[in-house]
Amino acid sequence: MLKYRRLALVIAIMALGVFIVGCTQGNNTVEEDTPVQGEMSSEDEGTQVFSIVDDFGREVTLQKAPERIISLTPSNTEILYALGLGERIVGVSIFDDYPAEVLEIEKVGDFNGNNIERIIELEPDLVVIYGEGNEEENFRLDEAGINYVAFEPESIEAVIGTIEKIGRLTGKVDEAETLIEEMNDHMNEVLSKIEGVKPRKVFYEIWHEPLMAAGPGSFMDELMTLVGGDNIAKDTEVEYPQFDLEQLIKLNPEVYLTSVDLPEKTVESISARPGYENIDAIINEEVHLLDPNVVSRPGPRIIQALELVAKAIHPEIFK
């Protein structure tokens, strides 16, 4: 089943070219992390074995902290930069655009996929991918003796876990702990502001033709629920259900959220859709377009996404 971030990003590729992630796969059991030999900190780089278990049960062990890293998705690139590893990154995808420094790094992935030949030529110590990745590409990396690690966080907790794992694998344990603490503090600050608020009925549009919602178990459903949103798609049976106009009007959201996946998608264009004039969110001008690079990337800015959603649902609290 398609996961929210992968679906949202593929949609964005078709429209704006935000970035591409891997193919659909089923759920995977994540094993416990393999204990690292000794407690690692930034000062210990080069003296420890760096070992984790990734999100697909693969044990990845490095004999020293990686000096040459390739990141094939923007979310992982943002994590690496947030941990102070920007100078070690030697390759990224064409879709990486944050922070600004990443624009100067060689591009090894684009709309057609990853340039595995160039990736091998760059001789990375570590390749960081999102999802299981491409089976043939993974085989070629193994064949070339190049270590790769795969993550697919599905919640805020899992994003924090990914940051912690990348920190351990790259010798940036202290930096990861600091970043996680800052994220938790920010999240607690946001949640304290909306504590006790009356939930508001919310709809999150994943795509418009056909109309698709963020349903139960999706990442956006978690964000909306955390900040006092009553997701009108919560009772559907899948994570990304299709909605027809009659359903939307019947459930009548007070707040309508989406991201800018097409240049022509605006508050005005959404409000002008046939039948939408009967929806409270349209009548009361509660349509909000969110930054897709923030709300679609499972990385350090995910708490910013939480705050954006909170401000859209409860604007009076954040004035």
Rank of each mutant, 00 (worst) to 15 (best):
T24W: 06
D291W: 06
T178I: 14
N112M: 14
E195G: 06
E39A: 14
L308W: 08
E182V: 08
E164Y: 12
T170W: 07
Y148C: 02
P298G: 05
S296L: 12
L122Y: 02
E239T: 13
V197Y: 04
A176S: 10
S269P: 05
T34E: 12
R168P: 00
E182R: 14
S259E: 10
L9Q: 09
Y276V: 03
R273M: 10
T178K: 14
D142Y: 09
G161W: 08
N114R: 07
G57Q: 07
G38R: 11
V238R: 10
K250S: 14
A272Q: 12
T258K: 04
V60H: 01
T258I: 06
D110V: 04
I302S: 03
G215I: 02
T73Y: 08
N28A: 15
E205G: 05
S269Q: 08
L126W: 06
P300G: 05
L72V: 09
L9K: 06
D33F: 08
V90Y: 04
L306S: 08
P298V: 04
V21S: 10
D185N: 13
N115M: 07
R168C: 04
Y130Q: 10
F50V: 04
L122T: 03
T225L: 05
E246M: 07
L141C: 02
L126P: 02
R6H: 12
S71I: 01
A281Q: 01
N252D: 15
L179F: 07
A8N: 03
E175M: 08
T77L: 01
I70Y: 00
N252L: 09
M220F: 09
T47P: 03
S93L: 01
F19R: 07
R58A: 11
P210E: 09
E177A: 02
P216N: 02
V287R: 02
Y4L: 15
L2V: 14
V197N: 04
P153A: 05
V190E: 00
P124A: 00
E237S: 15
F19L: 11
V18S: 13
Q247P: 04
D185F: 11
V90T: 04
T236P: 01
G299N: 03
T162Y: 02
Y130I: 06
S259C: 12
